[in-house]
């Protein structure tokens, strides 16, 4: 099956007074219809910017520095603003990381949903309202018909998050970019949203990019997962393989840091040091200053993604294994 979304050599640039930052650098991946691709990685690694770039919603001065983005084979990274806006509303659904900024504090929840629906579908006001209630119901807002007349600040954090999800799904999008959609939700509502996303993929053939820090959610939801570090994909592969047998030392460190029930350590393992800022990405492998397994080539040459036994990883260790 050919991919629904293809991203090739994407880079994102942000010009600042002193530097030209490249917080997303040469990122390639694709997502097939019905597939859920997870994206994990260090906070600040470029996950949200990648998602925003794909749908043309980078905030200026941020811009696409290079690469191609195709939706159903058609380039969307060089479209005119109006054309892109039309596609975005009808074919792409976006769930942003911060629910408050995607909701207008001055409009009721119901009005925001109805307007989104009516911009892209020929619906009467009553039909739109009925559909809005249905959507809120689907994302698990109790007594949707009673709460539709309320404003965002009258909802709890998790309820606002569900409203944002309802907005994103309103027009049955083919591509869904979900940035931390379940972090503000308790595990039972989380399960409901995950099942909803899975259903959209399985039944509607939607392609979904799911950005999350919750490895449990990723493990249960995704088919494949990409791990990002300092603006690049450092590992990508089937979720089972990446979670259970990670190849990249960064992914290994990440997996070891997860607090687990039943393991009663006073301290959690964590990766020493912090990720470099986009202003000073080290030469060679960007992870080498923190890597417990680094060897000669690591601070010299930048590794590209290489095929390992269970996944692809950008790490010289794979090369060494292959050579032996």
């Amino acid at each position: 099956m050919s991919a629904l979304l293809e991203v090739k050599n994407l880079s994102v640039e942000i010009p600042t007074r002193r530097h030209l930052l490249v917080p997303v650098d040469d990122v390639s991946f694709d997502i097939a219809p019905g597939e859920i691709l997870g994206v994990v990685g260090e906070s600040g690694a470029g996950k949200s910017l990648t998602g925003a770039a794909v749908i043309g919603l980078l905030e200026p001065p941020g811009r696409i520095g290079g690469g191609e983005i195709r939706l159903e084979g058609k380039r969307i990274d060089n479209l005119k603003y109006r054309e892109l806006r039309r596609i975005r509303g009808a074919a792409i659904g976006m769930i942003f990381q911060d629910p408050l900024t995607s909701l207008n504090p001055l409009y009721t929840i119901g009005r925001q949903l109805s307007e989104t629906l009516r911009t892209h579908q020929p619906l009467s006001e009553t039909a739109a309202k009925a559909r809005a209630i249905e959507l809120l119901d689907e994302v698990g807002i109790p007594a949707a018909s009673e709460r539709i007349g309320q404003y965002p600040h009258q909802f709890s954090g998790g309820m606002r998050q569900r409203v944002v999800i309802a907005l994103a799904l309103a027009n049955n999008p083919k591509l869904i970019i979900a940035d931390e959609p379940t972090t503000a939700l308790d595990v039972s509502v989380q399960a409901q949203i995950i099942n909803l996303l899975k259903r959209l993929a399985a039944d509607n053939g939607a392609a979904i990019m799911l950005i999350s820090h919750d490895m449990g959610v990723i493990a249960e939801t995704c088919d494949r997962v990409a791990v990002m570090y300092a603006g690049r994909i450092v590992e990508i592969g089937a979720v089972r393989n990446v979670v259970q047998a990670p190849n990249h030392p960064y992914t290994q460190g990440l997996m070891a840091s997860i607090p687990r029930l039943g393991k009663d350590d006073a301290r959690l393992a964590h990766i020493k040091g912090s990720m470099p800022r986009p202003t000073d990405i080290p030469q060679g492998c960007a992870f080498h200053p923190r890597c417990p397994k680094r060897f000669e080539p690591c601070d010299q040459k930048r590794p590209e993604l290489m095929k390992g036994d269970s996944s692809q990883a950008a790490c010289w260790l794979l090369q060494r294994e292959a050579d032996q």
Binding site: A143, R147, Q190, I194, E220, T221
Partner: peptide
């Protein structure tokens, strides 16, 4: 209902019932 690392792509079956409604 806790998502677990080892249950890769398993359907979660444990969640029962409607989410509670604080209004009634």
């Amino acid at each position: 209902a806790i998502p677990r690392l080892d249950m890769t792509t398993r359907e979660r079956s444990h969640v029962v019932g409607e989410v509670a409604n604080p209004m009634s």
